[in-house]
Write a protein that binds this DNA or RNA. Structure first.
Length: 558
RNA sequence: GCCCCUGUGGCGCAAUGGAUAGCGCGCAAGUCUUCGGAACUUGCGGUGCGGGUUCGAAUCCUGCCAGGGGCACCA
């Protein structure tokens, strides 16, 4: 990754300067390399000189000058990614010039301009790595559990479930790509109060809360008057006949469907309560058993067993937490709606009480989704029965559009979903702009008759030096950003970077397509055709990888 | 009252403390002897309000204003 390479170069340059006594010795903080928005500031830039200036109280421009001259003197190290590929390694170690120039600007920026030679080489690199392009080892093979959706089995999935669902699924894909071992898990709350309420609803008595056609359908199927038993049966049917089919339709495959019932069957809840009691972390008050979560940063203590001797959900949640850790996960990731915000401290407190670290728990809070119809908000609760289900949305606008729609938004934004615009939006959705590029690529390759026979192009890699049109260079610069995007997502779990990147990548491709005719029949342009086909193929690889991570289809025709 | 999130052109959204704030829709004007026009180019137009920190703030701190969510022996 060029970004990493540049920051390594800077670090070396700093050390050299320190060795030579030009800089005093100081601890080097993380060197940030960014991609400037303005082209005139280069392809990559760093503020390192300004950061150092603050540390050692020297003029940043002077420091930048010192760094620059050292960087230009340093032998360019081969791309570490290339090293892993023996076939290319000899070529990589060659004296390829990475930068055209390194500039110093105003307050103290160091701006790097990549050389054409370097960029051209990256095209060959992408072709070699193919599906593996963007596979990084930064996940260190960590075992991670990602729990998402986990909607109660009391009704159809909502758009809110869709939001967490798609984002969780994509994060899992990304983490898998960086060598993490991922388990995607759905926790089924199939016992307790909600289930009883479901039972009452199916019976249709005075305690009924859930409404909607699916309840009336269940009423016809399930007879009796034991609300708990009926609720359990209904929950099972809802999970199997409503929720699971929707999740299949969402394109999501869970590794584990974890039933809360199991925790009780295996007495895991009792065991965990014993454990907490033995650690002296509980106390009784007014007939209830409390857990001293305030010892671990929660703002108030929480009840484990109510005065009526019923366990709270929190009690089983702690048992579930323990269960997960016992399965050997280094990290637990949760996608929750904003209405669960207050639950985070509680869960982290529990983790710490059990001897784990708070940092092993990552909760991503997705802000609420609200649905508007004809300018009025429609309630999304499963109880009301007057909402659009996720299932209906996917049927209406299609899976690709649905996925893209939710993935593009940052989890922090409140999402107002306008039903009236939904269908209209789908027709001019940016996802088609992306898919159209893929179809174009396919069409070009089909016409060139090489299709997926990469070997023919790879033989011509030596011709890549013909790729020197600005639109070609711009496209290559987009292509090599892909691993950077992956790395960024791994850092902060913000998956919206992926669709945003896809749009930028594809825009560069469309521009290239306008400016550079790929297939030429003129004999003298045969080699140019070959190298451009290589670039098209490289684009196809990166675009396909991006779409795969998002779970969006890559159509050959539209 | 306390805690969390948000406020970016007419609308929907981007932007690890960086340099001239991007994109889509819409609107206006253009491009072609279509390797697929679902494309490309150009234009109009924006960081809620006030302080502060910083060489530099949409981003951090603070006070307002507005919206959403959370503060149960509920799930």
């Amino acid at each position: 990754m060029i970004k990493k390479e540049i920051s390594n170069l800077i670090e070396k340059a700093i050390k050299k300067n320190q060795e030579q006594g030009i800089f005093p010795v100081f601890s080097i903080s993380e060197i940030l390399v960014a991609k400037p928005e303005e082209k005139i500031f280069g392809d990559y830039s760093t503020n390192a000189a300004m950061v150092i200036a603050k540390q050692i109280k020297k003029n940043p421009l002077e420091i930048a000058e010192n760094l620059k001259s050292e960087i230009l003197n340093l032998p360019m190290r081969p791309n570490p990614l290339m090293l892993s590929l023996r076939a290319l390694s000899r070529q990589a170690i060659g004296k390829a010039k990475i930068f055209d120039k390194v500039e110093i600007k105003k307050p103290g920026f160091l701006n790097f301009f990549l050389s054409e030679e370097y960029l051209q080489k990256q095209v060959g690199e992408i072709l070699k790595q193919d599906d593996n392009f963007g596979n990084l080892k930064i996940g260190k093979h960590k075992k991670i559990n990602i729990e998402f959706i986990s909607a109660n089995p009391t009704g159809p999935l909502t758009l809110g479930n869709g939001r967490g669902g798609f984002c969780g699924d994509v994060l899992a894909n990304v983490l898998e790509k960086v060598s993490c071992k991922i388990i995607k898990e759905y926790y089924v709350n199939d016992v307790g109060e909600q289930v009883k309420k479901l039972g009452h609803s199916v019976i249709g008595d005075s305690e009924a809360v859930y409404k909607g056609d699916y309840i009336y359908d269940l009423r016809k199927k399930i007879k009796g008057n034991d609300s708990e038993k009926i609720g359990e049966q209904a929950a099972k049917i809802i999970l199997e006949k409503i929720i699971k089919p929707t999740i299949k339709k969402m394109g999501i495959k869970f590794d584990v469907w974890f039933s809360e019932k199991n925790l009780y069957k295996e007495k895991e809840c009792d065991k965990i309560l014993e454990q907490l009691k033995n650690k002296n972390l509980t106390y009784e008050n007014q007939g209830a058993l409390w857990f001293k979560t305030t010892d671990f940063g929660d703002d108030k203590d929480r009840v484990l067993i109510k005065a009526d001797k019923q366990m709270t959900y929190f009690a089983s949640d702690i048992a579930y937490l323990k269960n997960k850790f016992k399965r050997g996960f280094d990290k637990l990731i949760y996608f929750w709606g904003a209405d669960h915000y207050g639950y985070i401290d509680r869960l982290k407190a529990a983790a710490e009480a059990l001897g784990y670290k708070k940092e092993q728990i990552n909760v991503i809070i997705m802000q609420m989704v609200r649905v508007f119809e004809n300018g009025k908000e429609t309630r999304m609760s499963k109880r009301s029965g007057v909402y659009i289900t996720l299932d209906e949305l996917i049927d209406e606008v299609g899976l690709d559009v649905s996925r893209f729609f939710f993935l593009t938004r940052s989890p922090d934004t409140h999402l107002n979903f306008d039903l009236n615009l939904a269908k209209e939006c789908s027709a001019k959705n940016p996802v088609f702009y992306i898919q159209y590029a893929f179809a174009r690529i396919h069409s070009i390759l089909a016409k060139s008759k090489i299709k997926n026979q990469k070997s023919k192009i790879q033989l011509k890699i030596k011709n890549l030096k013909l790729l020197n049109h600005p639109s070609e260079s711009d496209l290559i610069k987009q292509l090599i950003r892909f691993p950077e995007i992956i790395e960024d997502i791994v850092k902060d779990y913000q998956v919206q970077r992926l669709p945003v990147y896809a749009l930028e990548l594809v825009a560069s491709f469309h521009k290239f397509y306008e400016d550079c005719r790929v297939i030429s029949d003129i004999a003298s342009e045969k080699e140019l055709t070959q190298s451009r086909l290589a670039l098209v193929l490289a684009t196809k690889i990166v675009l396909k990888n991006t779409l795969d991570l998002m779970g969006i289809s890559a159509p050959q025709k539209m």
